[in-house]
């Protein structure tokens, strides 16, 4: 089957800094891929190239059959299909929760307000915060904000969801509620690319774990295999550090 994300020999530099080195990665529809690796290894950069928040200098990326090149039509098309959740939530502080969620469907997908709001309420229901719809982001807890961010991304009805350390900015007691929402999403068959250090989450829902270091994919495989029996010594060193 044709993979929904295909990266071939992807290379990226920030000035002289070589951040992504010959990345080859295929993600199948419905697959949940967890990316781990030390700080600065290029995890964020990797997933940000998929919705073109970062431009690549060499190689090619095809998302759901759309070639991600400098054609603005393709960039727009890919961004409509790919949702993203950030470490720092990035909710729009001047809009209510409901406005945050309905904004993009209304102006990008051109849905009427009623339809957008109805779908927004369903999504809020799904992430369990329907009662907060009229509040402003600043009035919510971190965990609630991140669930709103997930609902906001889902409102565009994406085929792929990207998560960049969605729980790292949260107080420990709020991590669970966000992970639950993500697990529920994974079970519903969404294609997901998740950068996270939550090993429990990876073991439970990931189909595949990718270990990155210094801009390269060092090792990949099923969670059990990577966590319990890492092949590469850099993976071993990293896991030894993180699991204690």
């Amino acid at each position: 089957m044709e993979p929904i994300i295909r990266m071939e020999n992807v290379n990226k530099w920030f000035g002289a800094l070589h951040v992504l080195k010959d990345i080859n990665l295929d993600v199948q529809k419905g697959e949940v891929v967890v990316v781990i690796g030390p700080s600065g290894s290029g995890k964020s950069t990797l997933i940000r190239t998929i919705n073109r928040l970062e431009e690549i200098q060499k190689g090619r990326i095809v998302v759901d059959g759309i070639e991600l090149n400098r054609d603005v039509r393709n960039i727009d098309a890919v961004r409509k299909e790919v949702g993203m959740v950030f470490q720092s939530f990035n909710l729009f502080p001047h809009m209510t929760v409901l406005e945050n969620i309905t904004l993009a469907p209304r102006i990008v997908r051109k849905w009427p307000r009623e339809k957008a709001e109805q779908i927004a309420m369903e999504l809020l229901e799904r992430v369990d915060i329907a009662d907060q719809a009229e509040k402003y982001p600043a009035q919510l807890s971190g965990g609630q904000q991140q669930r709103v961010a997930i609902a906001r991304a889902l409102a565009m009805q994406p085929k792929i969801m990207l998560f960049d350390e969605p729980t790292s900015a949260l107080d420990p007691e709020m991590v669970g509620e966000v992970l639950d929402a993500m697990k529920e999403l994974a079970r519903s068959g969404m294609t997901m690319l998740v950068v996270t250090h939550e090993m429990g989450f990876a073991r439970e829902v990931a189909d595949r774990v990718i270990f990155m270091d210094m801009g390269e994919i060092i090792e990949e495989g099923e969670p059990d295999q990577v966590f319990s029996n890492p092949q590469h010594e850099r993976t071993q060193a990293f896991l030894a550090r993180i699991l204690h």
Partner: peptide, 14 residues
């Protein structure tokens, strides 16, 4: 903050 632009672009806004 830069995150606001990124969130907007990621949602498909021009």
């Amino acid at each position: 903050p830069k995150g606001q632009y990124e969130a907007a672009w990621a949602l498909g806004l021009s």
